[in-house]
Amino acid sequence: MRRVLHLSDLHFGRDRPELMRPLIETVNSLEPDLVAISGDLTQRATEAQFRAAATFVAALKPPVLVVPGNHDVPLHNLAVRLVKPWQRYRRWFGRDLEPCWIDDEMIVVGANTVNPLAWQRGWFRPRSLARIRRSFAGETERVRIVVVHHPMEHTPEDDKELMHGAGRAIEDLAGCGADVVLSGHLHTWRVGPFAEAAGRGVVLQVHAGTGLSTRVRGEPNDFNLLEVSSARIRVQRYVACEDASGFRITDSRAFHGGGGRWSVEP
């Protein structure tokens, strides 16, 4: 079994400083095998905000895999956004926008879904899907996890535009045996199978809200802890205490199956 801690939408620049130390201490005390951060480390992609985000990540003891979010490219500096959108992100978090983590029990692949030309709406690029297919090719035992910023399925309550290429991405990921997709962007918590993948393999979608931001949209600050194996996946939601003293478990969902086909555990 492996444990993956899923953080998203930290939004340094619109963060809660009083919650940072409790979050770091909670993450480190849980000792996950990997921390996956699904984008929006900053609010406006400034040097100071990236520095704060990098300081936070450096304080985490487990290995960390990070993908960018739309807030991690400059919004108001149009020239930089069009010509060098990733310059600051890469300065602080490395050149690889689609990192990968592999061990004996899992493969975790990041995909960059940010479209600098359409700042809010994401884009699942065909080349990113091809890279994921290659990474998962021939795998039958290890759990296969994808980390993106933009979710690929919305509910009627979601007020943001669905990512370009979302439908094709769900089909491709189901077809290549993906087990879990971790995402953020909406600042809401959701765990369950993709409805559109039913019949072709039931991929689990796991949304995290915001780990640190004041932009909570009616939900508390939270993160997910996934316990994954070839036959069972459990997702626990950790929510910030009202006094910001720490985080506590409020929800737990379990699924059984394997090989890209999962159903809710009775």
Rank of each mutant, 00 (worst) to 15 (best):
A169S: 13
R2H: 03
E105V: 00
R2T: 14
H76C: 00
F50Q: 06
G39F: 11
I233W: 09
G175E: 14
R14L: 13
D243R: 06
V216T: 15
D96T: 09
R44L: 09
H207T: 00
D96W: 07
Q236H: 04
D243I: 01
I233N: 04
L60V: 06
D15R: 02
A174R: 02
R217M: 06
L78P: 00
N70C: 03
V235P: 15
A208T: 12
G192A: 01
K84L: 09
E141C: 02
L117K: 08
V216M: 11
R51T: 15
R253C: 01
D40Q: 11
A244I: 01
V57D: 11
M1V: 15
R261T: 09
D251S: 09
P126M: 07
M1P: 08
P17I: 06
E31M: 04
S8R: 10
D243Y: 08
W86C: 00
T188G: 09
L30K: 13
A208W: 08
E227Q: 12
D172I: 00
T42H: 07
G122I: 07
G39S: 09
A118P: 00
A48G: 10
V239K: 12
R133Q: 14
F194A: 01
V64L: 14
I249G: 02
R21S: 13
F255W: 09
D15C: 03
V191I: 10
V146R: 08
D72L: 08
L41M: 13
A240K: 01
W119R: 14
L5I: 03
F56L: 07
Q236F: 01
D33H: 15
V108S: 06
D222G: 03
A208E: 04
V202Q: 12
H256C: 03
G201I: 04
V206R: 08
A59T: 04
Y238S: 02
E139Y: 04
A169M: 12
W262Y: 04
S183V: 13
A53L: 11
V239Y: 05
